[in-house]
Amino acid sequence: MASAFLGGGGENQMNMPQIEIQQQNARTAIQQSRPQMSVRQPSATLEINQDLAGTLNISRTASKLYIDQSEAFADANLKASLRQSKEWSQIGEQAAMAYIAKTAGQGEQLKKIENGTNATPFIARQNGEKPQRQAGMVMMPESAFKVRFNFVPSELDIESKWGKPTIHARKNDPEIHIPKWQTDVYLEQKNWITFSAAGSTVNQRL
């Protein structure tokens, strides 16, 4: 605010009125608004569908145990007809070969009678004597290994069929909020001016 005075001075002069002027300049103000920026990121949307109505197949074969007692029965002379006939054939063939060898040997002995050998009584005694039988104890069957075992274990087969999961993923864009900044300029105080008169007495001596 400013003030000024207008008028004359001196005691011999007329007391002139004085004008007092008061004024006030205008004044402006600035107001700013700067709100903060905000960023929000929503989570992604994930959907998973799984069909649990699958199938499970389990199959199993039966285990098998094979027991072969043919050799153990053979020790007790319990044999199949084909095997029995084959063995008898072999025994007969061996007996025939042994008889031929024995007869041939005795013939050779008889050929030497002319040399003064006494082969006839020896051959008669050899043909007339029966072999002595010997008694003994044997195991039946002779060994436990005569019984053979063959075991085939069972087999387990498992087959499962399950549906594959269906996965859907969807991203969500970020939410960004940027408010605008604002600056306001306003008149905080108006300008004004006033005039006033003072000292209106007149010096009459003049």
Rank of each mutant, 00 (worst) to 15 (best):
Ile176Gln: 11
Leu206Tyr: 11
Ser85Tyr: 12
Gly10His: 12
Gly8Asp: 13
Gly92Leu: 12
Arg133Ala: 11
Ile21Ser: 09
Tyr66Met: 08
Ser85Gln: 13
Gly92Phe: 11
Gln106Pro: 03
Ala104Val: 11
Ile67Asn: 13
Asn172Arg: 15
Ala124Trp: 03
Glu142Thr: 05
Ile158Asn: 06
Leu56Gln: 05
Gln13Lys: 11
Ile48Phe: 00
Ile176Thr: 09
Glu20Asp: 09
Ser33Thr: 04
Arg60Trp: 11
Thr194Asp: 11
Asp75His: 06
Ile30Arg: 08
Ala96Cys: 01
Pro121Met: 07
Ile113Arg: 12
Lys64Thr: 14
Gln84Trp: 14
Arg170Val: 10
Ala62Arg: 15
Thr45Phe: 07
Gln132His: 00
Gly199Val: 04
Ser70His: 05
Phe195Ala: 11
Asp75Gly: 05
Asn57Val: 06
Asn15Tyr: 10
Gln94Tyr: 08
Ala53Asn: 11
Ile91Lys: 13
Tyr99Arg: 09
Thr166Ser: 10
Asn118Arg: 09
Thr103Phe: 12
Leu6Pro: 04
Ser89Glu: 08
Asp51Trp: 01
Gln109Asn: 10
Ser196Leu: 05
Pro174Leu: 14
Leu187Phe: 03
Leu6Arg: 15
Gly7Lys: 13
Val185Thr: 12
Gln204Trp: 08
Arg133Gln: 07
Ser38Thr: 13
His168Trp: 00
Lys112Gly: 07
Thr194Lys: 10
Gln23Pro: 01
Ser154His: 03
Lys180Arg: 09
Ile193Glu: 02
Lys164Met: 07
Gln94Lys: 14
Ser59Trp: 04
Gly136Ser: 06
Lys146Trp: 01
Ala26Phe: 02
Arg125Leu: 14
Ala144Pro: 01
Ala2Ile: 07
Ile193Ser: 06
Ser160Leu: 04
Gln36Lys: 04
Leu206Phe: 14
